[in-house]
Amino acid sequence: MNLASHADFIVAAYGAAAAILGVLILWVMFDYRALRRTLAEFEDEGVTRRSDHTARSPL
């Protein structure tokens, strides 16, 4: 048994692991960007949380 005979399965296994974890990593990254963007939009509209009121008084 040598690498050549089963190389496809080994490559497939590492490829599958990379794909699954890669999808997770990409999801986390895009999710983060989207959330940051939404929060920034809220800030532009002047919607703030109670805890932020001391920082930027709305009135």
Binding site: L21, V28, D31, L35, F42, V47, R49
Partner: peptide, 27 residues
């Protein structure tokens, strides 16, 4: 290490998601 990094990153996203939720409610 990858597990911890991902866990921390997803936690950060989750906190931001809760902020977005609060903002929606306030709005």
């Amino acid at each position: 290490l990858l597990f911890f990094a991902l866990h921390l990153a997803v936690m950060r996203n989750e906190i931001l998601r809760r902020r977005v939720r609060t903002m929606h409610l306030l709005q």
